[in-house]
Amino acid sequence: MPHAMTEDGVRLYYEESGTGLPVIFVHEFAGDHRSWEAQMRHFARRYRAITYGARGYPPSDVPEDPARYSQARAADDIAAVLDHLQIDKAHVVGLSMGGFATLHFGFRHPARALSLCVAGCGYGAEKGQSEAFKAEVAAVAAFLEQAGSEAFAEKYAYGPTRVQFENKDPRGFAEFKRQLAEHSMLGSRNTQLGVQGQRPSLYDLVDQMKALTVPTLVLTGDEDWPCLQPALLMKQSIPTAALAVMPNAGHTINLEAPDEFNRIVGDFLAQVDAGRWPARDPRATVSSILGMK
């Protein structure tokens, strides 16, 4: 199995297909490298498509110490895969936990990003929700440790922003839940404690967003309630950001509606590749409602 090595000695399993400009897909907490199969097949027709398992997700290594999991490490692990593949710059596409990692990759390694697609990003980000989110993270970690991954999958898969997936595609949802049940209990627990529970609020990162000049697409489902306001924040703060909202869609949008997801992301990448992705016109940020001031 192919693995890339991180700076702190963690082996990350990866897959790649196709040739051309590289695009790397970064999975969510409840997914793994397999979650991107529909994107790997689609984008490998025109790109060098790459995906990998985050630390804690076999066949990647599962460090036992939660201190070896963090938001910064998650972003730097993207760079480690690119380093191993001798790739200087890539399009980076991430969902949820992977969307946070993608955004932080843009902060930490902007020169290495051709573009950023930050999808389904925002859980726990709103100021009034931070304490409740941390409490839920602790509860998830405790449940995983007590009951294991199979029991966890039976509960977590039916969250309020995932039932849309089951309603649209029962067979695809069943595969998602089966793969979730196969995850490492220890890796999932440590990811909750080290990455999810410790990451900074997006609302504390506005200055970094304002300084970001990498072409950025913020993408979310319109029933992914915890991500809607954070998506607007990113759109407003990142001067090179566009916002796309998928209708009647929940959190797992790349699985729930893969054709629409691929079309939106594909159009974004094509504009970036053509050098036609704009920065926001300053005239679009005036305070006047009618533009008469």
Rank of each mutant, 00 (worst) to 15 (best):
G148F: 11
Q129R: 12
A151C: 00
Y156M: 08
A132G: 13
F152I: 05
A138G: 09
E145F: 05
K127E: 12
F133Q: 01
A138W: 01
Q146I: 10
Y156S: 10
A138K: 14
E154G: 11
N167K: 15
A147R: 13
F165T: 01
Y156H: 14
V137W: 07
E131H: 08
G128C: 01
E150V: 14
V163G: 02
F143I: 01
A151D: 12
N167M: 12
G124P: 03
F143E: 10
E131A: 14
G124R: 05
A147D: 11
A135R: 11
A132Q: 12
S149W: 06
E126N: 07
A135H: 02
E150T: 11
A132F: 07
Q129P: 00
V140A: 08
V137I: 14
T161V: 14
A151I: 01
E145H: 08
T161A: 10
A151Q: 15
E145D: 13
P160E: 10
N167G: 08
E131G: 01
Q146V: 11
V163L: 13
F143M: 14
F143R: 04
A153S: 08
Q146R: 15
A153Q: 07
A153D: 05
A138Y: 09
A125M: 09
V137C: 15
P160S: 05
Q129E: 13
A138P: 06
Y158T: 06
E126V: 04
Y158W: 13
A157T: 02
N167R: 14
S130P: 00
F152P: 05
G128L: 08
G148Y: 05
F165V: 00
E131C: 00
A157F: 06
F143S: 05
Q146C: 05
V137Y: 02
Y156R: 13
A125D: 10
K127W: 04
L144S: 03
E154R: 09
T161C: 10
G159E: 04
Q146H: 11
T161H: 12
Q146A: 15
A147P: 03
A132S: 11
P160L: 11
A147M: 14
E131P: 01
K127P: 02
E150K: 14
A125T: 03
A141F: 03
G159I: 02
A138R: 15
F165E: 03
G148C: 10
